[in-house]
Structures are given as C-alpha cells and as structure tokens.
C-alpha cells in the first residue's frame, strides 16, 4: 500500500506539476530509499524534463529492486530511445511485452522507434496492434495521427487527430499534433489556438512550447529564421555543434586571409564583414525571439491549479 504522498505525486506528474511531484518523491525516498515505484515515477518525471542522465540513474535503481515491472521496463526503453540506442530500446519493449502482452504503451513505443528508423510498415503494424487493444484511447489515436503526419498524409492525419480530440478534448499530445498538422497546412490561426491551449494546460510541455515557437518563427522570417536553424543545430551533440561553428569560423576567416594575400583586400573585407554580420545576427536574433515569445507567454492564463 502506497503512502498517500505517492498518489499525490502521481497526480502532480499527470497534471504537469513536476516540481511539486519531485519534491514529494524526495520526501518519500528520504523515508524509503529502496522503493522501486518511487524511483520509477521519479525517472518518468525526469524523462519528461529531458534530464536523461538522471532518469537513467533512477530507473537503474528501480530495476535493481524490481526487474519484472513492465512499466519500469517501459521507462527504461524510453531512455534508451532518447539515447538513440534503438535496438536496446526494442529489446526492452519486447521484454515488457513478454510480461504483459497487452501493454499498449510498449506497443506504441515500439511503433515510435520504428517510426524514428523510418520503418513505416512496422510502425503502422504496432500502432494498429495498440488500437486493437484500446481503440477509443486518445493516446493510440494520436499515435496513428502522428504516423500519417510523418508520412505526409495531412488529410488523414487531421481526421485521426480530430477523432482523438473528440475522445479527449484536453489531451495535450492530441492538441499538439493537431497544431502541427494545421501549421503544415498553413492554418496559423487554428494552429496557434491548439498551441496556446496545450501550454495553458501544461506550461512545462516541451512539445507544446516547441509548436508555439515554430508558429511564431513562421510569422517572422528574419528573427524566426535563426530559431529554425537553431532547432536543427540543437539536435547535434555539444562537440558536434562546436565543430559546426568552428568550421564556419575557419571557412570565413581563412577565405578572408587568402583573399587578402592574393591581393583582393576589398573582397577580403566583404567576407570579414559577412562573418561579423552572421555572428551579430545569431547573437541578436535569438534573445529578441525569446523576448517576443516570453511577452506572448505572459499573456497566457494558465489553469488555476498550476
């Protein structure tokens, strides 16, 4: 039987109140440091916050206490996926499904992994298996909608997303999916509605914030242009990002120096000025963009219990 605080922490997690949930779990773990469920829930929250290394540490402890819990295995598979260890993630999902063949979340995660690897038939197959087990779930419908969105069939994606929203209008994933579909279709106004709704329901939802940022970037090409490039660069690791930036630095500066040595001082100056302009743009654009975003976010009315 769980401490009532664990139920409270679970509720806080489900409502996106991560700080409160973590605070309660710290209390619980102080009293019972070997409890697998507490470590498991903490791992799930840390995963939502994208604190992968810490989530990995917590789930390891949880699995040492209970290696046969399908939910703990599911979280471990999520972590492996975020660490880009796709084969390992699939193996862990399979282990969870061996223990509980009707574990819908594990089927959906396998679908997501196949989707990441662009193995579309396998992705659809697992989503359909999940749908056969839980046909009226907003979560499974959202997964199907995401599939159609990823393969470019926005019409079908929208149809499925609307079904998901009719089942559970406040489902954040479904709202974010709908927002992304509408954004691709150019319907900025309605995409914004879904983004705003998602953020007011859960201000810590990174997917909702990303959708909102993408919408704002579309509306302002000059400032938003750097945000879109930055979004792509942020997928690189720290060292890879540094190398990309240094290659840019070396390209411009070596070219400028070579032009000067060859007797083209004007061309050399043009290249140097272009580099400085690019650096200045990259430094100025992002803070201005974040300031504009924050100004918009301040106008939001978050749900009362947040």
């Amino acid at each position: 039987m769980h401490d009532y605080r664990f139920e409270q922490a679970t509720r806080c997690y489900e409502q996106g109140q991560f700080l409160q949930a973590i605070s309660l779990l710290k209390e619980l773990l102080g009293d019972d440091p070997n409890n697998a469920d507490y470590h498991g829930l903490l791992a799930a929250i840390l995963l939502s916050q994208k604190r992968i290394h810490a989530a990995e540490h917590e789930i390891k402890i949880a699995l040492q206490q209970d290696s046969q819990d399908p939910y703990l295995l599911f979280i471990n598979a999520n972590i492996a996926m975020l660490n880009k260890q796709m084969n390992k993630a699939l193996e862990i999902c399979d282990e969870a499904l061996r223990i509980d063949p009707n574990f819908v979340d594990a089927l959906l995660l396998k679908g997501a992994i196949f989707g990441f690897n662009k193995q579309r038939p396998q992705q659809l197959d697992h989503i359909e298996q999940a749908l056969s087990l839980d046909p009226d779930s907003a979560q499974t419908l959202t997964a199907l909608g995401s599939y159609y969105h990823e393969i470019g069939d926005q019409g079908k994606a929208e149809q499925v997303a609307r079904s998901a929203l009719s089942v559970e209008p406040q489902n954040i994933d479904a709202n974010v999916l709908m927002g992304n579909i509408l954004l691709v279709q150019g319907d900025i106004e309605n995409a914004t509605y879904h983004a705003r709704f998602s953020i007011t329901q859960n201000p810590e939802s990174t997917e909702a914030l990303r959708l909102f940022s993408d919408i704002k970037a579309r509306q302002n090409w000059i400032i938003g242009g750097w945000w879109r490039l930055n979004s792509k660069l942020s997928k690189l690791g720290n060292l890879q990002l540094g190398l990309v930036l240094i290659v840019g630095y070396l390209t411009f500066n070596l070219l400028s120096q070579v032009l000067e040595d060859l007797g083209y001082p004007v061309a050399s100056s043009v290249v140097s000025i272009a580099w400085l302009a690019l650096v200045a743009y990259s430094w100025i654009a992002l803070p201005i963009y974040y300031k504009q975003l924050n100004k918009e976010l301040e106008k939001f009315q978050f749900r009362s219990d947040y």
Partner: peptide
C-alpha cells in the same frame, strides 16, 4: 519515521 527528504539528491542537480 523522521522526514529527511532533504537528504535525497537527484544526481544531476548542481
């Protein structure tokens, strides 16, 4: 049991 929750530290917390 004493509430010593402040003893539990998540590893990535500075």
């Amino acid at each position: 049991m004493a509430n010593n929750h402040s003893d539990y530290v998540i590893i990535d917390e500075p």
